[in-house]
Design a binder for these strands. Structure first.
Lengths: 268, 268
DNA sequence: CCTTAGGTTCCATTATGTGAAACTTAGTCT
DNA sequence: AGACTAAGTTTCACATAATGGAACCTAAGG
């Protein structure tokens, strides 16, 4: 479960496959079915090249081409692959019962996240009120430097990965409380390491606060993070801090199981 | 929203990209983190070639490599892409409110599915008020010839796609009621076309029954299908048939909106 | 110390991908 | 209608990038 902070080059990359995947990202970024020309306008590839990629990806079911409107959209094969990814490569399936328990105990919103290219990828969530349906929120990405789970993970990253991650932060000041510089963030990360848990003090969204704890492997690797989130009119940071031990405990239990999950199959 | 029955060649295919995606599928099929040798054993690629693909895919974040155990698993980039896919290329986001309404009205399990390579891909689901444990789940795939949604979609496929789809069915007899031959299926599809809706008479799982209706574009294209599912000890086929009109009505409404969704953005 | 098995790197060969340009529609203006 | 334009598709000489056999590492195991 190598949820390193690391990743691949932002754009371009290894050979033909990398380029093809960039095309996929392009379509994904658009957020709606796009036409050939829209994609061409990114000037990432010459016409013929882009055309061939679109053909290939469509053939492969990674994209779907609607001949009536001439638009491309992400294909069903992705959904299928992602279902497999979600149920195998992430912490989500393992953590599931623990999230349920935490949600029941606290009555608050629970997030489970992993690091992805310096950003936070939410892999599962429990809503204060109703249960979740798969990709609706799981799969979303958010910033790392101003969220509880993000800071909790960054605090335990090895130096080189932390640097790479910091470089990727925008440090946009979402609220007056946002830590909007690398130095402010570094100081906060030190405090988090000392404490063992992170807070979000309305740094991303006004009125939203949380406590978060990292999920660490026995060797100290960052596997993910876990948070209990609330709002300022329902709770306070102090009240949330009272939950910190429970969150850390849960994180430890998840780590424990994640660890033991590795050994079962050593055979061919 | 080209949810044709069509797809890509089962294995191998266009150039380097196709092969790389086959490697992805290989890892997905395994259903657990796999080692280099496990993948090599498929004899799909020579050692060095497979190695390079794994490197590339890992670089790209499509796979993650755990250096401690030497295993490969599907990467987080897939989850991210799939989130985009789900919210853009499938019927799911459009159909959402309609599924909610149907779920509320009927109190039963609701499925929304699309065709994918002759199989049924469940893209969304609403659990019954008193949930039953069932095979299906958003992102999962299932057989077409023995499920309500599958048969509803097949019944309205154009001849060539139908043939392709039939060839891909296993016709495994899950239960005594399963239609276990192409001819039996063809007869059933004719009946479905006559009626406008399909049943699942415990053909896939004992005790599970449903009514399903196809979601058709104005031009007659199969976009997906919708079903209301129950169990034999809670309901009967007769009782479900009483819901058929409501299901068809909902399918028509979804089709309507899906259609109008195509026109909004004609600009660059 | 030798052997084996799992994994990684080399490198000459050649298949594949590349992209400018030419071509084909389908639409629009005069 | 005829001329113009924009969007999408095909072609082809060229060079990059993929290929895979073989050699090379490393640990385990004998």
């Amino acid at each position: 479960m190598g949820a390193d902070g690391g990743g691949h080059a932002a754009t371009g990359g290894d050979g033909t496959v990398g380029k093809a995947l960039d095309v996929l990202d392009l379509v994904a970024q658009a957020g709606r079915p796009v036409r050939f020309t829209d994609l061409l306008a990114h000037r990432l590839f010459p016409k013929a090249t882009l055309y061939r990629f679109l053909q290939t990806l469509t053939n492969q079911g990674m994209l779907s081409h609607d001949s009536e409107t001439g638009t491309y959209a992400l294909g069903v094969r992705l959904v299928r692959l992602a279902h497999a990814a979600w149920s195998q490569s992430s912490l989500a399936p393992i953590a599931r019962p623990f999230l349920d328990a935490l949600a029941r105990d606290t009555g608050e919103t629970i997030h489970l996240a992993q690091m992805d290219q310096g950003q936070v990828l939410y892999v599962d969530k429990r809503n204060a009120t109703k249960p979740v349906d798969m990709f609706s929120q799981a799969g979303k990405v958010g910033p790392a430097y101003c969220t509880g789970v993000g800071k909790a993970m960054m605090a335990y990253l090895p130096d080189d990965l932390l640097e790479r991650a910091i470089e990727r932060q925008s440090f946009h000041a979402f609220t007056p409380r946002t830590l909007a510089s690398p130095d402010a963030l570094r100081a906060e990360l030190a405090a988090i390491r000392a404490r063992g848990h992170a807070f979000d003090r309305e740094e991303h969204e006004a009125g939203i606060i949380c406590v978060a704890a990292p999920i660490l492997s026995r060797t100290g690797h960052v596997l993910g993070a876990l948070s209990v989130t609330s709002t300022t009119d329902r709770s306070t940071l102090g009240a949330l801090e009272a939950q910190a031990d429970k969150v850390k405990q849960t994180a430890a239990e998840i780590a424990e199981i994640a660890e033991s999950w590795r050994f079962p199959e050593q055979n061919a």
